[in-house]
Computed example of a mutant assay.
Amino acid sequence: MRALLARFLMKYLMFYELAADGLSKAQANFPAHQARLVEFHKAGTLLMAGPYGAPPIGAIGIFTSRAAAEAFVAGDPFVINGVVGKYSIHDWSEALAP
C-alpha cells in the first residue's frame, strides 16, 4: 500500500467546523484571517481554501505539508477567537496529480 501511495502527491486537508456562535464572530475576525490565508498562499504552502455550505458550516484548506497546516491553525484568528469550534487535519493522496 505504501508503494501505491508514493505514486500520488501527498497533501494535507484542514477541516474547520463553525462554532455555534461562529458566524456572529466571523466578520470581526475576517481581515486578520484573510491576511493569514494570503501569507500562507504566497509562501506556497496553502494551495486553496474556502468555506463550504450555504450558509457556511465550515471551511476546507489544502496544504503542502502537515507542519504548514498545523502552523496555520495555531495562529489563525478564526481558531483563536472562537469562530471555529472544531478542526482536524488529514493526510490526502491526490490521485489526479500530474
Rank of each mutant, 00 (worst) to 15 (best):
M1A: 02
R2C: 00
A3I: 00
R7H: 09
R7Q: 11
F8I: 00
F8M: 11
F8N: 01
L9G: 02
M10W: 00
M10K: 06
Y12C: 02
L13I: 15
M14D: 13
F15P: 03
Y16Q: 01
L18W: 03
L18C: 03
A19E: 09
A19D: 12
A20Q: 15
A20D: 14
D21N: 06
G22V: 09
G22M: 11
G22Q: 07
S24I: 09
S24W: 05
K25L: 13
A26R: 12
A26L: 12
A26N: 00
Q27T: 03
Q27M: 13
Q27V: 09
A28K: 11
N29Q: 12
P31G: 10
H33E: 08
H33N: 06
H33S: 07
R36T: 11
V38A: 13
V38G: 05
V38E: 14
V38D: 15
H41Y: 14
G44C: 06
L46M: 13
L46G: 03
L47C: 06
L47D: 10
G50Q: 12
G50H: 13
G50A: 14
P51V: 15
Y52Q: 06
Y52W: 15
Y52S: 10
G53W: 14
A54E: 15
A54T: 08
A59L: 12
I60M: 15
F63Q: 05
A68G: 06
A69E: 10
E70P: 02
E70K: 01
A71F: 03
A71G: 07
F72A: 11
V73C: 08
A74G: 07
G75P: 09
G75S: 14
D76G: 12
F78P: 00
F78W: 14
F78S: 05
F78K: 00
I80R: 05
V83I: 10
V84G: 02
G85P: 02
G85H: 01
G85N: 03
K86N: 10
S88C: 10
S88Y: 08
S88D: 12
D91I: 00
W92G: 01
S93E: 09
S93G: 04
A95F: 05
A95V: 08
